[in-house]
Amino acid sequence: MNDALVIAGESYHSRLLVGTGKYKDFTETRAAIDASGAQIVTVAIRRTNIGQMANEPSLLEYLPPEEFTYLPNTAGCYSADDAVRTLRLARELLDGHKLVKLEVLGDPKTLYPNVIETLAAAKTLVSEGFDVMVYTSDDPIIAKQLEDIGCCAVMPLASLIGSGMGILNPWNLQIIIENANIPVLVDAGVGCAADAAIAMELGCEGVLMNTAIAAAQNPVLMASAMKKAIEAGRESYLAGRMPKKLYSASPSSPTSGLISGNG
């Protein structure tokens, strides 16, 4: 079945996007990402450690650009200006790479998105030619506005970043998905494979996660579980579930031919 995820004109066979933070070391990062089957991986942009980095290994050596599509993010940015500045640097760093993840946070305690700054940053980035995948709240009106600005994917939270609380408002996600003409991906809040499957069954085009894998007791095994959950959830969505009924007068086995029967 050809069921590719298409983002900004590029096709991906994996609908699981993963972060590269919080792992024990780069070897574990690489092993978990391999197990996840992810093709798109997020990276953060940070000040280079001047003076103490002569032969320090770098993340990019473990995740070569020929093998993965990088999605540089604006994690830690609290203003549109900082987010735009960060992604301009990312574009230079990654040789003109256009696909980016925009997130502008509103509060260091909850990491809840600041949608006003997010909208402003999205406008600037789209006008500068970036392909913007945008992290946002699960507000359907904001999601639609981000689409109208020209973002290539909208990524509402399932619950707060790093919380692992799962999908707290499936109804809002459904409204966002129903209204959208661009891919909707859940970003943040997924805690276990069941959460990922539910997101896909709601009709999400994909799921982006980091902590759910990195903070599992066995990250590599969880990465494998997430891969399967995303695939299972997608197939379940495409197959179309049976209607829910309180009870059924139609058993799965034949009602005739019973050994104690008269007919």
Partner: peptide, 10 residues
């Protein structure tokens, strides 16, 4: 000057 690189992140 700001000198930046890519690091792990979500």
């Amino acid at each position: 000057l700001e000198i930046v690189g890519a690091v792990g992140g979500g």
